[in-house]
Nucleic acid binder design. Structure first.
Length: 421
RNA sequence: GGAAGCGUGGCAGAGCGGCCGAAUGCACUCGCCUUGAAAGCGAGAGUCCCGAAAGGGUCCGGGGGUUCGAAUCCCUCCGCUUCCGCCA
């Protein structure tokens, strides 16, 4: 959420920046709501000050002065009620409007609105060239570790069932990621709820605009949402808190299932594990000093890349176009892994700097030793999604004889170094 | 789900309907003292909002009510604790 004052400051250049992501800011409306709200607060405060004066006067008043003062106090009270009502209305309208304005994309991002407009930053590893590469579905079924038919029987399309060494591989990947991030990269592991409140979803920006992307539950009169990523609970751990500036940066990780409705992606990636309603992911979240957020993003991407490299998976890093980044983001790198079956790089991790946008929504404040107060900056990135990594491990590790070699770093976790049909 | 009790500042813990933004202790910040530290002494310090500032307003779990005036009285919701039931 933006500070309306900052948004309206010409130096912010908000209209131009938002236009880059195709959002048209209604400056006139924002100005009207913001100044109207402030005026209503002023009016209410003045009335309350008057009421406070009258109360003191009543206490010291003589018996004949008293009735007139009490009468006046009652009138003032009525005025307070009016001013407060005005304030409440404008506050609500302003709040609603602010909640739907996306974050300002950084100027360094390239123009454009799709992944085709992303800018390649670097590549790592050599894309495997195979005669007739199988895709992960064919591989998985031949190896007997993937059962999509039964997944459909259980839950419908866009679910997966892993069996035997497939399930073990999934478990191994998650443990491998968590161990690396906690032991080498300084992250604290958390176990968090995957059902969260509307307020929590609003804190990170999934709500109110993207309710159609979420799974919603309702039991009795209680409403909860299934998280689309651990970013939601991890970032909101510190909602409505004030953090001491010197304890930053905070680095958190968690493995959770992630639930996405995938509304609006009907024809896309219908095969296999790429796009599911439910998948497991290890997420990285950093809560940092806003002045350092971009440097922290480089650090975060580095942590995701480190596990990719240890698995020996060829990938590239791209800088997303201004019109392609998420609602709450101001700067995003995607890591794309090489998929031999598609002959292309596909997104495996998205690492974003949100500036203070989420912290304002969730109210994650900071206080320095000298008493200076502000909002923290938040960042997050996948580190990594288990399913898509499994896809890459299968596809990049496939051998001419139909077997799949397990990356060396993973063997201590799987207990086997090859998958054979 | 049933019964009882409790929700005050970072923590602990006071608080006759106006003198309470709130005693006191601990913790904290800054001085003094000390070679340094502790102790001791002195001073200070809460949050959020409006305001260029001066200043004003707000906040004693949330919401509502009584009253000129509520941390203090009433209603309601939420949370916590203990006992019973149920359950992994």
């Amino acid at each position: 959420m933006h500070d309306p004052r900052v948004l309206l400051d010409p130096a912010t250049d908000a209209v131009r920046k938002l236009a880059r992501r195709g959002y048209s800011l209604d400056v006139e409306r924002l100005e009207r709501l913001s100044s109207g709200r402030n005026a209503a607060i002023r009016k209410a405060d003045e009335c309350r000050a008057e009421a406070n004066r009258l109360q003191k006067a009543v206490k010291g008043a003589s018996a004949d002065e008293r009735p007139a003062l009490v009468e006046k106090a009652k009138e003032t009270k009525a005025q307070i009620t009016l001013a407060e009502e005005e304030h409440r209305l404008l506050e609500a309208e302003l709040g609603e409007y602010l909640l739907e304005i996306p974050n300002l994309p950084a100027d360094e991002l390239p123009d454009g609105a799709s992944d085709a407009d992303a800018e390649q930053v670097r590549t790592w590893g050599t894309p495997t060239e195979l005669e007739n590469p199988l895709d992960h579905v064919d591989l998985g079924e031949k190896l007997g570790i993937l059962d999509l038919g039964r997944a459909t029987k259980l839950s419908g399309p866009r679910f997966a069932v892993l069996k035997g060494r497939g399930a073990a591989l999934e478990r191994a990947l998650a443990r491998f990621f968590l161990d690396r991030h906690t032991e080498r990269h300084g992250y604290t592991e958390w176990s968090v709820p995957t059902l969260v409140s509307r307020a929590t979803m609003t804190g990170t920006g999934q709500l109110p605009k993207f309710e159609q992307d979420l799974f919603r539950t309702e039991v009795a009169d209680r409403e909860l949402f299934l998280i689309p990523t651990a970013e939601v609970p991890l970032t909101n751990l510190h909602a409505k808190e004030t953090l001491a500036a010197e304890e930053l940066p905070l680095a958190y990780t968690a493995q959770t299932p992630c639930f996405r409705s995938e509304a609006g992606s009907y024809g896309r990636d219908t095969r296999g594990l790429i796009r599911l309603h439910e998948f497991s992911k290890v997420e990285l979240v950093r809560i940092v000093d806003p002045a350092r957020s971009r440097a922290e993003l480089e650090t975060l991407v580095g942590h995701a890349e480190a596990v990719m490299q240890e698995l020996g998976l060829a990938y590239r890093v791209v800088r997303l176009a201004a019109g392609d980044i998420g609602f709450s983001a101001e700067y995003t790198y995607d890591i794309e892994v090489w998929l031999p079956s598609q002959g292309t790089y596909r997104e495996i991790s998205s690492c974003s700097d949100f500036g203070t946008f989420q912290a304002r929504r969730a109210s994650i404040r900071t206080k320095a030793k000298d008493g200076t107060r502000g909002f923290a900056a938040t960042l997050n990135g996948s580190g990594l999604p288990v399913g898509r990594t499994l896809v890459a491990v299968l596809e990049q590790g496939q051998q001419p004889d139909g077997s799949v070699r397990i990356p060396e770093a993973l063997v201590p976790y799987t207990g086997f170094d090859v998958l054979t049909p």
